[in-house]
């Protein structure tokens, strides 16, 4: 299965980005092969409103079935919930470490959005 991470860099050694909708890019990692795909998020990172919604849409379109982030805004959370994508919470760490934790099944499920939305 494929897992998406907001990323500060472009490979698995980079850190998880603390933001979701306004992260610079996402890494979508295949849990079987450990290969990954990079989705640039530049258009959304600067959006006045709805950045989380569009980022969620991009991650879903890339085929992710789970997403790992420090925070989730209410609208992005709504999109994931409707699409049946698992939302998992993690602290900032290298993405390769988070993949290990994911495989061990120790990343907690997010119960709801923890960030207020931004209107514009």
């Amino acid at each position: 299965m494929k897992i998406a991470f907001p990323a500060t860099g472009t490979d698995l050694s980079c850190l998880l980005d603390g933001r979701f909708g306004r992260a610079p890019r996402f890494l979508v990692v295949d849990s079987e092969t450990n290969s990954y795909q990079t989705i640039e998020n530049d258009g959304n990172a600067d959006a006045s409103q709805g950045a989380g919604i569009q980022s969620a849409q991009a991650v879903i379109a890339a085929g992710a079935t789970a997403v790992v982030s420090v925070h989730f805004g209410p609208k992005a959370f709504q999109v994931f919930e409707k699409a049946g994508i698992k939302t998992l919470q993690a602290d900032i760490a290298p993405i390769s470490d988070l993949m290990d934790k994911f495989r061990q099944g120790v990343l907690p499920r997010m119960q709801g959005p923890d960030k207020a939305g931004h209107a514009g």
Partner: peptide, 10 residues
């Protein structure tokens, strides 16, 4: 309006 909402949310 918009700017007040943008300053207040969150």
């Amino acid at each position: 309006g918009c700017p007040a909402i943008a300053s207040l949310t969150g």
